[in-house]
Amino acid sequence: MSQTHSTHEPAAPRRAIPDRLGTPVSRVLASWEVLLFGVAVVIFIANSLASPYFLDAWNLSDATFNFTEKAMIAFAMALLIIAGEIDLSVAAIIALASTAMGAAAQIGVGTPGLVLIGIGTGLACGAFNGMLVSVLKLPSIVVTIGTMSLFRGISYIVLGDKAYGGYPDGFAYFGQGYLVWVFSFEFGLFLLTAAVFAVLLHATNFGRQVFVIGNNEFAARFSGVPVERVKFILFLLTGLMSGIAAVCLTSRLGSTRPSIAQGWELEVVTMVVLGGVSILGGAGTIAGVVIAAFVMGLVTFGLGLLNVPGIVMSIFVGLLLIVTIALPIVARRIKQASRS
């Protein structure tokens, strides 16, 4: 990834530089997050009009499971993409971590041990990716296509066409438990990780370094940013979040197959890009990713209530991705054309 945009293309500048900035209010109103929030509200209203079952506290609570696990990974992925890298192996890490937990459960490891094994596997996979990218300086997009096959491939070697089940009773809490009333443990964890990552990205030195690397890795190096170390930590974080997501998903499903979480890497990337994070790196917010998670969750849940099959929903997700990115570009073009 970093190689792809280290040379500057003579294309039009990514953003036109205005003569003066608008007022703070107009800038906030024009921001991606507000636009996306508007989309979320429209989808929410459309859903409640389309189905009488939508506005029900328990139904809405169920809907959150559509996105909480993916969103937890998306927060870490957002940082990674802002820094100009990508990790396509996240879903495969879930498969491997889940397989490791399943194998441990078969020999009678208790709930705390299983959680540690799941998170540990995630960290180990993240460290492996991080090492390949930051120590051997390989392009992350190909490396993680390779590790994606490798991690899930190990699951297939271990499990073949079989499945692991028989998790201890206490283990079910992470994916099926509720904190208070309709608020699930997963939803709580989603809010907590969102807050942690928002602080990490927007209020710490580390977060600034992530932005600097994504905007100009070359300049970052000259400014004394430890580029390799930051990238390694980002891959480690993505592995960690994939491990946590694996714990939640395995607990929720109560079983492990090697095909678990198949195709999630694309949904996670979609969520991040939809959240306004530039796929070229250097720009993005956690708030955007949070709203994007809600948008995707609402769309899939609303369509589900209307009995739309899952694969047709994916058409909407794909369209949502392309249209939300294309619309501002088209709008800017029209604006420029009418001015000249």
């Binding site: 694309l266 796929i279 994916s314 570009i329």
Partner: peptide, 23 residues
Amino acid sequence: VLQIPPIVVTLGTLTIYRGMAFV
């Protein structure tokens, strides 16, 4: 024409085309 990064475009059309095969 829209200069959207290829990986984003084809990630989107990947799900759309396969969904259309189902439709």
